[in-house]
């Protein structure tokens, strides 16, 4: 099992993007998915960084793919999607309409925002050319086990969400703009104020969700460290880690050590908690319960 880095869902400035991917080139991860996932309005601000990032990551021996948007509605967005293939990298489909632009016989990847819940869907995608599929985070472990078997038979590498705020929903409406009493079309790019999303708490102060433009994330950071060994046994080929604005190089290094057997999950959780004392965690989907639940235990070493 190795590590895949999810596309960064947040709105970071070009300079920050540049240093983030330069750092990632040095990290012990096998592959990186790049591109704008959440909002096409953000892309002009940082798209010039993409070619450099691809070059740096490839030079460091990493596989690179380009993500589609999560929700494609505008003509401009459809054109962007159609143009993705032109860069010669695998496209990661995160809105099924991207498939309309990928000719039969061209291999592609499937991201966690496509609904792959069962054997029939996995087989259909495999036969259409899917080589790598990251399962939706809410999928119960029993389903993951069944799909791992099918994926092996079909020659598809299967990934599971390993770390980061869970992508829970996508909308036509921009919640960041709404919180600033603006509409999406006049948002003035306010989502750039929250490099990891904007926290949404309950009226009783329970940490609950985070908004990121048109996307809603969990406020807690999924940490599937305790489940890695079981997933490895099932035949899952990669854990997916989602970029965050602080301490991400260390997070990648720790998960790499976990997969190599050089760090226990308890130690990883302990290190994560020490480095990010205000970061809530969850792993409930790994226990087939509410996704927000957290059973992980830090073990001091």
């Amino acid at each position: 099992m190795d590590l895949t880095i999810a596309p960064n869902p947040f709105f970071w400035n070009a300079e920050f993007v540049r240093s983030f991917y330069a750092g990632l080139a040095e990290a012990p991860v096998a592959r990186v998915v790049l591109g704008e996932l959440v909002c096409s309005k953000r892309l002009p601000f940082w798209q010039d960084e993409i070619p450099q990032a691809i070059a740096a990551l490839q030079a460091a021996g990493k596989e690179v793919a380009l993500t589609s948007l999560a929700l494609i509605t505008l003509k401009r967005e459809r054109k962007l999607t159609a143009d993705l293939l032109g860069l010669g990298l695998p496209v990661e489909v995160n809105d099924l309409s991207a498939l309309h632009h990928i000719p039969e016989g061209i291999p592609f990847w499937v991201g966690p925002l496509v609904n792959v819940y069962n054997e029939g869907t996995l087989r259909w995608l495999a036969r259409r050319g899917a080589k790598r599929i990251c399962l939706p985070p809410e999928l119960p472990m029993a389903s993951v086990a069944v799909l791992a078997g099918v994926a092996q038979a079909e020659g598809v590498a299967l990934e599971v969400w390993g770390h980061g705020r869970l992508p829970l929903a996508i909308s036509g409406r921009c919640y960041h703009a709404r919180l600033h009493e603006r509409a999406k079309d006049s948002c003035q790019f306010v989502c750039d104020q929250d490099p990891d999303g904007r926290d949404v708490d309950t009226l009783e102060g329970q940490s609950f969700l985070a908004v990121n433009g048109v996307q809603t994330l969990s406020q807690a950071y999924a940490c599937m460290a305790d489940h890695a060994a079981r997933l490895q046994q099932m035949g899952i080929s990669a854990l997916r880690l989602q970029p965050q604005s602080t301490g991400f190089d260390a997070i990648c290094a720790d998960y790499a050590q976990l997969l190599a057997g050089d760090m226990t999950s308890g130690a990883l959780i302990s290190r994560l908690s020490a480095a990010h004392p205000d970061m809530p965690f969850c792993d409930g989907f790994g226990h087939d319960g509410a996704g927000a639940n957290w059973r992980g235990k830090a073990v001091l070493v």
Partner: peptide
Amino acid sequence: VMAEGRCSLSSYATGRS
């Protein structure tokens, strides 16, 4: 308000979606 069929808010809070 979310794109239908692409929302896990309910399972995040309850385990059922």
